[in-house]
Design a protein around this nucleic acid. Structure first.
Length: 600
DNA sequence: GGTATCACG
DNA sequence: ACGTACGTGATACCC
């Protein structure tokens, strides 16, 4: 107790302290505190740290009596909720959730070592503490598995003896503080990266935490019905396929399918997988189907239905939190090299939309009673960014006039008037526009459009002749990448390209395409992240009954009280469109409905 | 645990 | 001559 009081004083007066929560589980909404650890700079020696572990709810047999959790949290709450007492941590979003589970709103989250590492080098694959300690401090930490075991027999933290847990936990807090010092020094040497960290990544973290906690409601009856229907259709398709093959086989196994297609039925092998196996991927089966073979048609339909069932209609209901009745995704903020977010458990960023069957799954994402879903998405954001970054006059004009950009591109490429553009020409122009964003090759465009490579090259040449600024920009970007070894977004987010000068042509070309794509994809990520931060600030001071639920790269989804939808839409649109001022207008399309499909 | 496939922007 | 459009995550096999 005396020690705890001493630490209370230390934390109250510290300029900055590291915090780490030890918990019963890793589930953000269920995890409860087992112990708390803190680290501060040693006031008597700036080069060393003081770290402590406060065991609270270890409950193995013969565990010693520990300080009372409620009392400890009560004493700590004013410190944890004081935004002027700064905290650092490793993946603070997790600690925020854990404390939230105990009714505490952690504030003053100033530095997250995971995000510091990600901002410094987004290409590095892992930003977990053990790897960071090794990389930046040349220190090998004790891994959780070493004290808890692994696999089925792994202990949860409450089952670990305090004498083992304490040094492990204290090390974590100490290392976090050390890491922060090192990483922050590196960020301070790079003002633009420091701004990305301070102005975007750190303020975004609590926004994501709130969205995760909000979750979204699913219509489980609807999904169950869809599953049943799909099951029936799958059985029919399977029966037909077995009949044609003359034997029973597993339609889910690409290996067994290879045998049936290319040995039993002797269909031509059109493509091989990287491992040299005959490919049965979608484009191959589509081509075989076009040649008039029946089996590939069956397989394609079977696969698309099996995907919907296993990944969505069956899997999503299992992810519903029993306490809240909603699904709570986890947003990964330090994964995608371009600066985008990713979503896991479940991934809510790849819910079907492109087919009618798939859209039925979106219809099961619903608003609760008395509320509507509002979906707001940026229109053509990456092409607008390309117009801005390249400064190409033609492209800037097209956006300034509010033209349908694919139609305008078609008119330019084919040298005709806007109203003369056919559906087919617009489709080709759209593919060219997408290709530009991806660092297109004539081969890739040809494949996409199903035209000859020569024709594809012709489109590309025509495009660059009409939009010379874009060609210039692409050349400049590659040039810059080769000299600097990285490219950056409009906000200065950096993406390193170690292979940009590689002797291996394949690696180099891959890096060149990334050099083209990353500034556009990454700037779009910057923009929506800034919009999210501003929307959150507005939400925190508005009386409107609204929650932000999801982010899907260029789209935000909200749940809004029915009678406030119109007012709220106007505000969201304004904030999103003015998140960043470009040389072209940013346009947000916004809709509402009882479900996510309707809201589009 | 790697490979193939397919869902999204 | 070669391999070829950017970024993700989940699921099913199969070793």
């Amino acid at each position: 107790m005396a020690q705890f009081n001493r630490w209370l004083e230390r934390l109250k007066t510290a300029k900055l302290f590291a915090i780490d929560t030890e918990t019963t589980s890793l589930d953000t909404l269920q995890a409860k505190i087992v112990g708390l650890c803190f680290a501060v700079e040693n006031p008597e020696d700036k080069n060393s740290h003081l770290a402590c572990y406060i065991p609270l709810t270890h409950d193995y047999e013969d565990a010693p009596k520990q300080l009372d959790l409620t009392m400890v949290l009560e004493q700590l709450t004013p410190i944890l909720e004081d935004e002027n007492i700064l905290k650092c941590g490793q993946n603070l979003k997790y600690d925020w959730h854990v404390l939230q589970n105990h009714g505490i709103s952690l504030k003053g989250m100033q530095f997250d070592t995971m995000l510091e590492s990600y901002t410094l080098n987004s290409v590095a694959t892992r930003h977990n503490m053990d790897d960071l300690a090794l990389k930046y401090l040349n220190h090998r930490t004790t891994h959780f598995e070493e004290i808890a075991g692994k696999g089925k027999k792994q202990l949860t933290f409450n089952q670990i003896e305090i004498k083992t847990a304490a040094p492990y936990a204290a090390e974590d807090a100490d290392i976090t503080l050390q890491l922060h010092k090192t990483l922050w020094q590196q960020l301070e040497a790079e003002p633009k990266l420091k701004a990305v960290f301070t102005d975007i990544e750190m303020p975004l973290m609590p926004v994501l935490a709130h969205m995760e906690r909000n979750g979204i409601l699913l219509d489980t009856d609807m999904l169950a019905k869809q599953s049943e229907e799909i099951t029936l259709k799958l059985a029919e398709l399977e029966q037909k396929a077995h009949l044609i093959a003359g034997s029973d086989f597993n339609l889910n196994s690409s290996k067994q399918l290879q045998v049936v297609l290319f040995e039993t039925l002797e269909l031509p092998i059109l493509k091989k997988t990287p491992k040299g196996q005959p490919s049965t991927a979608e484009p191959v089966l589509a081509e075989l189907a076009e040649q008039g073979h029946e089996m590939p048609i069956l397989i394609l339909e079977y696969r698309s239905l099996a995907k919907l069932k296993s990944t969505y209609t069956d899997a999503l209901p299992k992810q519903i939190d029993p306490q809240t009745g909603r699904v709570h995704t986890s947003y990964q903020q330090a994964v995608a090299s371009t600066g985008r977010l990713s979503s896991t458990d479940p991934n809510l960023q790849n819910i079907p939309i492109r087919t009618a069957e798939g859209r039925r799954i979106r219809q099961a994402f619903i608003a609760r009673d008395g509320y509507q879903l509002v979906a707001a998405d940026y229109s053509q954001i990456e092409l607008r960014i390309m117009a801005h970054l390249s400064g190409d006059e033609g492209l800037l004009n097209a956006f300034a006039q509010g033209l349908d950009i694919h139609q305008a591109t078609a008119a330019e490429i084919f040298g005709i008037e806007l109203d003369q553009v056919t559906t087919e020409q617009r489709r080709s122009a759209k593919a060219v526009n997408f290709g530009l964003i991806y660092g297109m090759s004539a081969f890739g465009l040809a494949k996409q459009l199903n035209v000859s490579r020569g024709t594809a090259q012709e489109y590309i040449n025509l495009y660059f002749a009409r939009y010379p600024g874009v060609l210039q920009y692409m050349e400049n970007t590659k040039e810059h990448a080769k000299e600097a070894g990285y490219v950056e977004t409009l906000k200065g987010r950096r993406l390193y390209l170690p292979d940009i000068n590689a002797r291996n042509g394949q690696l180099r070309q891959y890096a060149e395409r990334t050099a083209i794509n990353a500034p556009m994809q990454g700037t779009a990520a910057d923009i929506i992240k800034m919009a999210m931060i501003q929307i959150e600030a507005w939400l925190n001071c508005t009386e409107f009954d609204i929650q932000m639920l999801m982010q899907v790269h260029d789209e935000l989804v909200f749940e809004v009280a029915e009678n406030q939808v119109e007012a709220v839409k106007k505000e969201i649109k304004t904030i999103m469109e003015s998140a960043l001022t470009l040389k072209v207008p940013l346009i947000v399309e916004i809709g509402q409905g009882k479900n996510w499909d309707e809201a589009h």
